[in-house]
Amino acid sequence: MQQKRGIDLIVGLFVLGGIAALVFLALRVGNLSTASVDNAYRLYAEFDNIGGLKLKAPVTLAGVNIGRVTDVKIEKAFYTAVVEMSIDSKYDNLPEDTSAAILTAGLLGSQYVGLEPGAEESYLADGDKIEITQSSLVLENLISTFITSGAGQGAAAQSGSESSGDDF
């Protein structure tokens, strides 16, 4: 009987160890501790271009993570992207003129939505839409803008030097 209790005890410890390992995986390795926003409200924002924004990308306010991107759709009438965000309801005092921008973490990091609070007295509520948005910076567009404007500037600088006498 004594030996039987011993085996029971060891098996119990084994099962507990396995469950503890699962909990460790869930909380420390996985994102269960951070992923679910229990009490959340939804906000929408319309962007011309969302670049590489992905589902579950963080939504930050002053650099602090306050929510997640939960859905991305196309607004058929305007050919724009509508991003649905789920924001922790602890932060329910975002002014109505809050602006949203798609930013990049680091030089080539993943993209996230950064919120910039405005100055209105009334607050955004569940289902509201953020009106002021800034689209993602697409590297190719940036480079092509840089090349064309750089060429333009070069031409402008030349014409400027030629006509500098006229201005002054």
Binding site: F14, V15, G17, G18, I19, A21, L22, F24, L25, V29
Partner: peptide, 16 residues
């Protein structure tokens, strides 16, 4: 059937 999932969880955790 019961033991292998538990062993797998332990294996993964100890691997991490």
């Amino acid at each position: 059937f019961i033991a292998l999932p538990l062993l797998t969880a332990i294996f993964t955790s100890i691997g991490v």
